[in-house]
Design a binder for these strands. Structure first.
Lengths: 343, 343
DNA sequence: TCCAGCGCCGTTACCGCTAACATAGCGCTT
DNA sequence: AAGCGCTATGTTAGCGGTAACGGCGCTGGA
């Protein structure tokens, strides 16, 4: 192993490799990118020198020169939701051997933060952007429109997208759940969810849910909202509170599985007959539920699939010659579990 | 030679803003970076033009010219572990107003993937690298040593780091748990954990745990390992399996809280007296536990704090003039919960 | 024999921005 | 009136790569 000749702390450049291997920088560049014709002897000489020096190419310079960046920006609201890591894993799986690489940004459900994160990402000129939701600030939307790269808005299809859209209809998911519950004979229905006004998908589910109830001549008997804290614990507390306040409730619809699981545990602890006396349902299909004493009714949000499809659009766009604007609506499947009465 | 007139789809550059506002590119650059003296009138003219055009600076070019990149690489094994998102949130909180931005890479506990991710990251010349664990391939370690930027290895202090290290001693954590269990009078102790050979921290905890038992003249009565699937469910299944196989067990030590929670639920479902007949303990202090019927004994791994400190080192290095090599060992606190007998 | 064609490699001109150094204009001192 | 120190702005020369093109030596068919 030879050492870099001059200042050992100076970062290595193509020139160092070129000098070490006795060929031009251009040839080194060709070898390292596997592009263009290079003889086997030269190739090996160069690779040997690069490895010996410990050369790591400078993608900044490369990207500037070639106007190509192998990064895909992924913007999501949160990491603590379990849902988003799964979407991410779908994305990276699909991107695996395309040479593209996801770069993540988190907004904490704040539109302003989203705008800032998007700006930061676009300033690195990624090859594409995947962003959760259809609701953005005007500025953010304008940036997406002018980005000049494929944009995929994910999770939600209830609205108008900038470019491509992959997701499910949360409105219809809520509606379908309402229909199922009503069909099972429940009549006094409560909703428990987060207080976050920026969680548009939870809001749309609730709207669809109410719509479904209305179609059967029903309306929500009671509601309970929370913010922050351990979701499981909050689920317990809220369940206790709402059942104390409105004892006539015979069904509880939770905006996510985590608080639903808390509610289920509370009911079981307190000897409440589920699903006889009270039925329960959540949303998301997290595999946490598999370990619960009883399986909570839920709806799968197709998270991995959404990630895959979105990545596929980004990766495929150049090849397929598509101009964009696809809308892919996935169908969530209802998993009745053990917490809705069988009719 | 000047560029072709005005292709509306051509990405904007400093020159466009400079022409639109009638000053030089340099002045525009100064305004947008808030650096150097610019008169208020000029500043406003430039900002107005930039906004009107929807200009987004090209950080690739900027980084190349200034040899400065506001990115910090963060390399972690997994996102589905709950632990890592929390570390991440500590990092981003600390980096919030330093102008630095975390960029994440996931290795899935694969050393080869770690090497690849690290290479990719370094090729973007980040200002620092935060990487989980002390165990890396030789190549990866060499890259870290030659990166020329601060490196912080996190989570674990049981070993030798490349540069700075922030974490807890998993060996001592295991040892301390063993001492507590022995002191509470348990004598037939089983271990349940993951099969992953690359999860060095879990391995070190187990080693420390065995050491603690040995100090009291004890050894593990039985062990059970799993891989993949819903951790909660696996916890149930493994608990059932190990208790069937070794009914004399009076304590179960789980390698993480999730399977511990599964075990706890199984015990409660099956009418097993916890902590009288069997004691239980996990590891991590995930807030999921707050919602369980009984609070599982666990040990907090200082996740957010680790993230904060690591980010602080990266962000502070230039200011503090430190050359690196700090080792910060945090003290995990044992939370006895309700699943260990009181003595 | 000649030259088109190919494999291989080098030269040149940038990519979009910024560090570093000029420079122009101003008010003030001496 | 010349000189000084400012502030506000412009000019020049890269940063480390890559696209595009050109050139050389060799081969083989006309």
């Amino acid at each position: 192993m030879t050492r870099p000749p001059a200042d050992p702390r100076r970062p290595l450049t193509l020139r160092d490799v070129s000098e070490a291997s006795g060929v031009s920088e251009m040839t080194v560049s060709r070898v390292l990118r596997n592009r263009g014709d290079v003889s086997d002897t030269t190739r090996e000489k160069v690779l040997g020198a690069a490895k010996a020096l410990g050369y790591v190419p400078n993608k900044i310079a490369g990207a500037l020169a070639s106007q190509r960046v192998n990064l895909v920006g992924v913007i999501i609201p949160s990491l603590s939701n379990l849902v988003f890591p799964e979407v991410l894993s779908g994305i990276s799986a699909e991107l695996e051997d395309t040479g593209l690489q996801p770069v993540m940004g988190v907004t904490n459900y704040s539109p302003a933060k989203e705008e800032a994160v998007l700006y930061e990402m676009l300033s690195w000129r990624p090859s594409g952007v995947i962003i959760a939701g259809l609701e953005h600030t005007d500025t953010a939307r304008a940036m997406l429109e002018n980005a000049g790269v494929p944009v995929v808005e994910i999770m939600d299809v209830d609205g108008v997208g900038v470019d491509s859209v992959v997701g499910i209809s949360h409105r219809r998911a809520g509606l379908q759940m309402a229909e199922t519950i009503v069909a099972a004979g429940y009549r006094h229905i409560g909703f428990l969810g987060t207080k976050m006004p920026e969680d548009h998908r939870a809001r749309k589910r609730l709207e669809g849910f109410k719509e479904g109830l209305a179609a059967a001549g029903l309306q929500l008997t009671d509601e309970e909202f929370y913010s922050g804290g351990s979701a499981l614990l909050k689920g317990r507390e809220m369940t206790e509170a709402i059942l104390k306040r409105s004892p006539q409730l015979d069904f509880l619809y939770y905006s996510n599985d985590m608080i639903g699981a808390g509610g289920l545990l509370w009911c079981l602890d307190n000897g409440i007959d589920v699903p006889g006396r009270v039925g329960l349902a959540g949303f998301n299909g997290v595999d946490l539920l598999d370990g619960l004493p009883r399986r909570l009714a839920t709806m799968d949000a197709c998270r991995r699939e959404i990630g895959r499809k979105a990545a596929e659009i980004i990766a495929g766009r150049p090849h397929s010659g598509l101009i964009g604007g696809e809308v892919i609506e996935l169908e969530p499947t209802l998993q009745p579990g053990d917490t809705i009465r069988r009719v």
